Computed example of a mutant assay.
Amino acid sequence: MLSEVQQLQETMGLGGGIASQVWDYWGKLLSGDLGYSIPHAAPVLQLLLTALPWTGLLILGAMPVFLIGGALAGIEAGQLPGGTVDRWVTPVVTILASLPPFTGAVLLLLLYGILWPVLPTGGAEPLFPSTEHLGRAMGVLRYAILPMLALALHELARFYFLARAETLNLAQRDFIVNARARGISPWRLRWAYIGRSLIPACLSRLSDTLTGLVSAVFFVEIVFSYPGTGYLIYSAILDRDYDLLQGAVVFMAGVVLLMNWLIDGLSAHLARRG
């Protein structure tokens, strides 16, 4: 019986002292071994690589909404402070900024799941997905609309107020004043002059936003039962699957650091180009 207990401790990485356990864990971590999930009967890395594309789909799908939507609305409000867009959009965005991602996701679930049930409110694809690639892609996109929207609403306010403040500052710059004096079309002024000048500021803000974005997607996935890394971590907490929980935290920290590094590199490249 004692030998069986010792063998089980060795299998679960609990043999030896604390120092040897930490040393063994770091050795496995550097070799890409994040542990083994007993409830899922699979390696932790395999589970995370399966769930990560679903989380990436939500983040990449929400980015154009809050980046482009927030920037365009902020530019419109900043060009005419106190105008119609500024008076109507700014209070709405302020209310959205006060809502945590969990609350926004629940409100969308209530609206489109009960009051106006036109979109699926759980899962990532239909129970019987289409055998055609295009049909399956459309089904996956349909199931991702509400989680993407919940995630985008959480971040929209940051880029709206950023674009509005930057537009107010740019309006006093000489190149904007000269462009207006030359009769540049409003669309070209928004895109070629103000919009391009906002890109470095938006990239810098996006780098700061990534950590909050990853934490927000966890709550959104839990609300919509979406099979991403957030829902995987939630199931690990419920199952007390410490190997999966520990591996997921380390893995997602590495993903966030990598994304920050890529965005900082792109920002530095744009800064060198001027």
Rank of each mutant, 00 (worst) to 15 (best):
G212F: 03
Y231C: 06
G228M: 15
A248E: 08
G247L: 02
V255G: 13
L245E: 15
L206P: 09
T229Q: 04
L257R: 05
P200M: 03
L198P: 01
V256P: 13
D239W: 07
L210N: 12
S235P: 09
L213C: 14
A236G: 06
V220S: 05
L213I: 07
S207P: 03
Y193M: 01
I263H: 03
Y242I: 11
F251I: 02
R240C: 10
L206W: 05
D241L: 14
I194V: 09
F219C: 03
V220A: 02
G228T: 05
L262S: 14
Q246E: 04
I237E: 02
W261Y: 12
L232R: 06
D208M: 05
I233F: 14
F219V: 04
G254N: 10
L203R: 04
M252C: 11
R205I: 01
V255I: 15
L206N: 03
L262M: 15
L257Q: 06
M259S: 14
L258M: 15
I222L: 10
A201G: 01
G230E: 03
N260H: 03
L203A: 08
L206T: 11
S197K: 00
I199N: 01
S235D: 14
I199R: 00
M259F: 08
G212C: 07
R240F: 11
L262N: 08
T229N: 14
T229S: 12
D239Q: 15
F218L: 10
Q246G: 08
T209N: 07
L213R: 10
V223F: 12
S204M: 03
D239E: 09
P227W: 15
V217P: 12
Y234T: 13
V220C: 04
G254D: 10
W261Q: 08
E221V: 07
D241V: 10
N260D: 07
T229C: 12
V223Q: 14
R240E: 12
L244E: 10
V255S: 09
I199W: 00
D239C: 12
G254S: 12
S225P: 05
L198I: 01
V256N: 09
F251H: 03
I199F: 00
D243A: 12
R196A: 00
D239Y: 14
S225V: 10
I222D: 06
F224M: 09
L245I: 04
Y234C: 09
L245C: 11
V250A: 15
T211H: 13
Y242R: 09
T229M: 11
D264Y: 06
I233E: 06
C202P: 00
L206H: 04
L198K: 02
L210F: 06
D208H: 02
Y234L: 13
A253C: 14
P200N: 05
A192P: 00
D264L: 14
V220I: 05
Y226D: 11
L198R: 01
